[in-house]
Design a protein around this nucleic acid. Sequence first.
DNA 1: TCAAAAGTGTTAAGTTTACACCCATGA
DNA 2: TCATGGGTGTAAACTTAACACTTTTGA
Lengths: 225, 225
Amino acid sequence: MDSYYSINPKFYVAVDCIIFGFSEKDLNLLLLKRTFEPAKGEWSLMGGFVQENESVDDAAKRVLAELTGLENVYMAQVGAFGSIHRDTGERVISVAYYALLNINEYDRNLVQQHNAFWVNIHELPSLIFDHQAMVEQARAQMQQKASIEPIGFNLLPKLFTLSQLQSLYEAIYDEPIDKRNFRKRIADMDCIEKTDKIDKTGSKRGAALYQFNEKAYKQAPIFKL
Amino acid sequence: MDSYYSINPKFYVAVDCIIFGFSEKDLNLLLLKRTFEPAKGEWSLMGGFVQENESVDDAAKRVLAELTGLENVYMAQVGAFGSIHRDTGERVISVAYYALLNINEYDRNLVQQHNAFWVNIHELPSLIFDHQAMVEQARAQMQQKASIEPIGFNLLPKLFTLSQLQSLYEAIYDEPIDKRNFRKRIADMDCIEKTDKIDKTGSKRGAALYQFNEKAYKQAPIFKL
DNA sequence: TCAAAAGTGTTAAGTTTACACCCATGA
DNA sequence: TCATGGGTGTAAACTTAACACTTTTGA
């Protein structure tokens, strides 16, 4: 049944991952200092080629797992990048995805093997090809989505303090947030609930630990930060 | 220089177009009743395969022009659709785009040759493959974008009445808008300006014709509807 | 003369912003 | 005892939403 299609050309299709982590009150990206061609020695996103036996989404998940050892990570598609000469080698059409993960949970060995490093989002190096455009679009889309859907929690531990959550959103929006107004908004959302646990590591007094309640969110999918 | 890539498979890459028009107070899509395989006889979006000598964006423009005869049409990418069996023939990865055009300006002959028809968005037939998902995503993205960027004007003639503009936004949001509140918001935007022309076709009294001022928008890119 | 669309302001409700002090504790 | 981060409420500014009548004119 290939008769309708076979006059058309075929292309390499890649996926590239914009991997966000949150640490030290800033967003970070997991980037490769390439030890392989093309563009050996330069910085790039983690990427890989789509294979026959996987969907494009699955390819992105596989590539992320190859670098981090993680599965079931939150990912969202940024879009397709299809300029003719975007890859300096051969023509490759790439689909970019961003991933949000807890920066304390990944496979250090794999990351080291790939010569990958967490880089503060305010100190990004030049990236190969159109990877900078991918990062910019990912950042804008993630920011937009984080304001109306509870995706930010993927960047935090299961239990977190309100100060941590506030710092996270300050990093996402890249602007300061008023503490009292922030806490008022949190209090209005049923899906963020206080636990009886206390974090003593961040302050002398100790801060209440909160968690995101998935079920409560599904019952009342209200989220605005 | 293909040595790094050649172990990887290649794929057909297609583009599919969600073509929006505005008529009779409703959004419409330009759809094909297919006269060709695969899925002959069924309804689908206009699509085509990416070629070697064009970017993916350019392929989308070309495919749109093949059907409508139009160039310089507003288009935005919806995203890549890459399930393994999304196309029932061979594996095809498709990138969807939506287009916004003035429903009075297109090449009737080309459209007829392709057996394409404008269909009210509330009366869409079943579509092949994952085209319905493409339409839903396109609709959501267009709605979101139309609220913060002046893309809606692409669906109207250069000169339009405020009633037309209001009907358009009611169609985009699929909900009624208060006339006085709407006109107040328009009055606050420098980029929408009254001309000295009057439309006499829509009412006995006649209505002032307005136009979008691109330069004014660039100087003060403020838009909220 | 009347039907049909154009045009026009005000008020109440709700949302957002700005802002400062006391608390608990470990060092 | 004091430095550090945790925790709390109110009032003003702004934005949004609700609402009804007069005007013009061609049929």
